[in-house]
Simulated assay, not measured.
Amino acid sequence: MRAHKITLAALVVAAGLSLTACQNDGDDTAATTDPSSVATTSPSAGGAGSDGSDAASPEASSGGKDTTAGAGTGEQSTSGKCRTDGLKITAIDNFIDGDPQGTVAVEMKNTSGRDCVIAGFAGVDLKTNEGTLSAERKGEPGDPYVLKNGKTIAFSVTYPLNETGGTGVRITNLVVTPPNETKSVTLPWPGKPSLPVTDGSGEPVRVGPIGSAGQGG
Rank of each mutant, 00 (worst) to 15 (best):
N94P: 01
G120P: 06
V207Y: 03
F155Q: 00
G102V: 02
P141D: 14
G86N: 05
S61L: 12
P100V: 00
G98Q: 07
S79N: 09
P209S: 03
K192R: 10
A119E: 12
E163W: 02
A31M: 13
C22R: 14
L161V: 00
M108V: 00
G208L: 06
T84D: 06
A48V: 07
P160R: 09
E59R: 06
V38D: 08
T20Y: 15
S53V: 12
P141E: 15
V104S: 04
G80Y: 00
H4G: 13
A48I: 05
Q76A: 15
G86F: 07
P100C: 03
V38M: 06
T128W: 07
S77H: 09
P141K: 12
V12F: 11
S61Y: 11
K192I: 04
G139M: 00
N173H: 12
I210L: 03
G49R: 08
S184D: 03
G131A: 05
T32K: 15
W189G: 02
S156D: 11
D27M: 09
G16F: 15
Q215T: 13
T172C: 01
P35Q: 06
T152A: 02
I96P: 00
S50H: 06
T78N: 08
D54E: 10
Q101P: 02
D27S: 05
L187H: 02
M1F: 15
Y159T: 01
G200W: 07
T103V: 06
T164I: 04
G26E: 12
L187W: 05
P179V: 03
K109H: 05
I89D: 08
T32D: 09
K183N: 11
A56V: 12
G49H: 04
P35I: 12
G102M: 04
